[in-house]
Design a protein around this nucleic acid. Structure first.
Lengths: 120, 120
DNA sequence: AACATATATATGATTATTCGTATGTAAAGA
DNA sequence: TCTTTACATACGAATAATCATATATATGTT
């Protein structure tokens, strides 16, 4: 992982909030992030695509939704940096977390640990 | 420390190399960084100014030279990120380190631990 | 004082990033 | 099949970052 490419992902408000929220919540879909960050969908999708293409996130489809999570195969130092940053920056995320938790009708997600996904 | 401002400092090749080299060497002056990175002086100075204004570096004058070092008053998580990144990215720095160590006539520096600076 | 060395900064040009809008694709439900 | 929901992407416009050059300041030397 090239460190400059890695850190370019952190150098934008929208991207860093997406990344740290996903770190905090394990897995989030586009509509949850759109609500949490109070931004339009194409903006969120565009930044998620960049995070995915850079190798920081992986996605999976579950029915209509596409869930994003931290790429577990990232180098250890990258995972450490993400973890350290999330743990130390609650106030940076607080508004987004509040909106996420206030959100009604969040899509149910199949567990990651087994293959119970049945298309909804 | 706002995390986006912090990480914008990491999102440029020149700046990240300066920052990590200083982390590795404790303290470096502009001409050493100019040699190590093989870049022109105004480019190095411009990036160092940004790192200083962002609070990541502090400087001290010693005679003709201005030495930069990591701001020891940075939040712990910032110091951790810098340390983790430096430790895991030797190959990103190797060319610069080689040029730095091959450099003749590096300016002598007064010790930081006492106030022995006498103007050169 | 005159000059050399080290460093900082201003400026306009170039390049890269980010944006909103429009539109395309895929899945689900009627 | 038609509609709705969720998401992705293309596009030109706007904004931000970066650059090389020129020049200014501070220190040291002769």
């Amino acid at each position: 992982m090239n460190p400059v490419s890695f850190y370019k992902c952190f150098a934008d408000d929208t991207r860093l909030k997406c990344l740290l929220l996903i770190q905090q919540e394990q897995e989030l879909c586009v509509c949850e992030l759109t609500t949490a960050l109070d931004e339009i969908q194409p903006k969120i999708s565009r930044h998620l695509a960049l995070l995915r293409k850079s190798g920081l996130l992986v996605d999976r489809r579950q029915g209509q939704w596409i869930f994003y999570r931290i790429n577990p195969e990232l180098p250890t130092w990258c995972l450490q940096v993400i973890s350290t940053t999330e743990a130390a920056n609650n106030s940076f995320l607080s508004d987004s977390v509040a909106r996420l938790h206030a959100m009604g009708e969040r899509p149910e997600r199949a567990a990651l640990c087994c293959h119970a996904v049945e298309g909804g």
